[in-house]
Design a binder for these strands. Structure first.
Length: 425
RNA sequence: GUGGCUGUAGCUCAACAGGUUAGAGCUCUGGACUGUGGCUCCAGCGGUUGGGGGUUCGAGUCCCCUCAGCCACCCCA
């Protein structure tokens, strides 16, 4: 038996309620915040991610789905959402639009990783990017948008982790200080950290080994080593968050796994204990556009995992309300009635009424049972007798009452039933 | 990529310490009720016990390999 590739999942009609629920909330919130939807290809030139995400990162080093196509080009399935959007911004000259350009997306993301609940090789993210604005107030807007999404779908107990990792002016000096500090303790570090020291010093602060914790505490922190501009930027962000009554936890070990981040970085963690998988995260990336084009474009955004949102909703017992549309089941008896039924069904559908029917001759009992299974609101019963008299039986399945209706009046009678269904007294 | 746990009908689960033909509930289909759903009763459909190999007279059960899911790491969404 063949099955879905490891770490991928089918999305069945039964799962759809949650997906449309969270998607609808995301879309209406983006509308309220003024973000317009963008779609980019599922695969891109491999260099896009190598240059932006960074050669030393886990994503580029071991998680990308990279392949060459029949023409020999190296392509990569999108492992994150930001770089493609920035690429599109530059490619379409959006720097000539009124700034900032505020974009949102819903995208499949691919990362080769060991699967687990809430961690798939193909997963889906909502994301938002604001390009062309360096002021920290827009950082606060982005964070607010993300938290508004969580709150509106009903997630509780989440926490915002916040940090600032400096910019091109102050980070080089900071990295030097950090590296110097760690070099003096190099023999006490775990193997992983010894490697990080060479390849990606910022990640030293992210180590989970108990033996490395004291060094993380003692090491210089980015927040204490910001240049004046970064410091002012961070102050504005904090003031803005306060003004929106958004609570946050300063987390100096939050450094993020992608190279392109500058200044503001944040993650949102769910309620459950332990080092849980983040619901969403993001940050500022003022140096990113340079790696793609010839232009500097400040930007900030986030990505949040749709599967993880849904997983946490289910754990919290939040269920989306499933409102089924008004529907009619056409039950027919006899061949002539069956032919009439397919015509009638099609006619109702053209009028926007959800109509279901039986596809083969079967007992009326079986047909009504199916009508019940499919949660039809009412059934139209038509046999050869009714047909001869130009009448049909209209049965209300909720109240179990039925009446004879002239075939020509059926649509009107259904519309009346539907209206009553949609706003009950 | 590392370590561990778990895989039996579509779903939830049974099957003494290896022992006839792997069972039940739910779902679905049909009947009781030749043209009236839900309730009840009856019946039917549905399995290479994840897959492959081995041990044994005999394997769902024990061993090995493999695949998948899950948990903890790693990392992130």
């Amino acid at each position: 038996m063949l099955q879905t590739p490891r770490g991928t999942a089918d999305l069945l009609p039964a799962d759809q309620a949650y997906w449309s629920y969270v998607t609808a909330h995301f879309q209406s919130i983006c509308e309220a915040f003024g973000y317009g939807e963008i779609r980019t290809p599922v695969f891109e030139d491999t260099r896009l991610f190598q240059r932006t995400v960074g050669e030393g990162t886990d994503i580029v080093e071991k998680e990308m789905y990279t392949f060459s196509d029949r023409g020999g080009d190296s392509l990569t399935l999108r492992p994150e959402g930001t770089a493609p959007v920035v690429r599109a911004y530059l490619e379409h000259g959006m720097h000539r639009l009124p700034q900032p350009v505020k974009l949102s997306y819903i995208a499949s993301i691919f990362r080769y990783d060991r699967p687990q609940a809430g961690r798939l090789r193909q997963h889906h993210q909502f994301g938002v990017e604001a390009l062309g604005e360096e002021a920290a107030t827009i950082d606060a807007e982005i964070i607010s948008l993300l938290l508004t999404l969580y709150r509106s779908v009903g997630l509780t107990g989440i926490s915002l982790q916040l940090n600032n990792i400096g910019d091109a002016a102050c980070r080089p000096q900071y990295i030097e200080d950090l590296t110097a500090y760690y070099r003096s303790h190099v023999h006490a570090l775990c193997d992983n950290c010894q490697a990080r020291l060479e390849r990606n010093p910022l990640r030293l602060l992210d180590c989970k080994e108990d033996s490395c914790q004291p060094f993380i505490q003692e090491a210089p922190h980015t927040l204490d080593n910001l240049c004046a501009d970064c410091d002012a930027h961070f102050s504005t962000l904090k003031r803005s968050l306060d003004a929106m009554e958004i609570e946050y936890t300063l987390n100096h070990t939050l450094v993020r796994g992608l190279d392109y981040y500058t200044r503001t970085v944040f993650e949102v963690w769910p309620e459950a204990v332990g080092r849980q998988s983040a619901l969403g995260g993001g940050g500022r990336y003022d140096g990113l556009a340079r790696h793609i084009g010839k232009r500097d474009v400040p930007g900030i955004g986030f990505g949040t995992g749709i599967e993880r949102i849904i997983l946490n909703l289910q754990r919290q017992g939040v269920a989306p309300d499933e409102r089924q549309p008004f529907s009619v089941y056409i039950a027919t008896l006899g061949e002539r009635a069956g032919t009439y039924g397919i015509g009638l069904t099609n006619d109702l559908r053209q009028r926007g009424i959800r109509a279901l029917l039986t596809y083969k001759q079967r007992s009326l009992k079986a047909q009504l049972r199916q009508a019940g299974n499919q949660a039809a609101d009412c059934a139209v019963i038509v046999g050869d007798d009714e047909l001869a008299q130009g009448q049909v039986l209209l049965r209300d399945l909720k109240s179990s009452t039925q009446e004879n209706v002239a075939a020509t009046d059926l649509v009107q009678a259904l519309e009346r039933l539907r209206a009553g269904e949609q706003d009950p007294q």
